[in-house]
Amino acid sequence: MNTKPYRHLELAKRVERSHTTGVRFLHSLRSVGMTFIIFISLFFSQTVFVHAQSSITAIPPRLILSTDPGKTLTAELKVRNDSDVSQIYTVTVDDFIVIDSIGTPIPVSSSVNSRWSLKNWITAPKTIPVDAKGTQIVRITVRVPVSALAGGHYAMITYMPNGDIKPGELKKTASLIGQRVGSLIYVTVSGDITENASIIKFTTPKFLEQGPVEFTGTIENISDIHINPKGSITISNPLNSKVAELPLEAGNIFPETIRDFSSTWNNKWGWGRYKADLNLAYGTTGALLSATIFFWLFPIRLVIYSLIAIISVLLVVVLLGKRSKKHQEVLEKEVAELKRELETLEEKK
Rank of each mutant, 00 (worst) to 15 (best):
N113T: 13
S324I: 14
A250S: 10
D277C: 05
K78I: 04
I227T: 06
K322V: 09
L289P: 14
A197G: 13
P205D: 04
M156W: 08
A124S: 12
E334Y: 05
M34N: 13
V335N: 10
R7D: 09
S263V: 09
G151V: 09
N2L: 09
K133R: 15
I200K: 11
I106E: 03
E76D: 12
S175I: 11
L319V: 09
V93Q: 01
K242L: 04
E214P: 08
V313I: 14
V243W: 11
K4L: 09
K230N: 05
I177G: 06
N267A: 11
G211R: 01
K4F: 13
P107R: 00
R62V: 15
S147M: 12
T141K: 06
R143H: 14
F298W: 00
V32R: 14
I88A: 10
G168F: 15
S241A: 09
F261Q: 03
S28L: 04
T194Y: 06
G163A: 07
L289V: 14
R80Q: 02
S101K: 12
L184C: 04
F39M: 06
D224S: 15
A287F: 15
S101Y: 06
Y89I: 03
T74L: 09
L208R: 00
A250H: 01
L288M: 14
A75N: 09
I140V: 11
K339N: 10
L26A: 10
S41E: 03
L319A: 13
P5L: 08
D164S: 12
N240S: 15
S83K: 12
L280C: 05
V142Q: 06
Q210I: 00
I199V: 14
L342W: 04
L176Q: 03
N81W: 04
M156K: 03
S28V: 04
Y305K: 00
I233C: 00
S147K: 15
N81E: 06
P238M: 00
I300T: 00
H153P: 12
P125D: 09
G321A: 13
K333E: 11
R323S: 05
T194N: 13
T194G: 07
E220S: 07
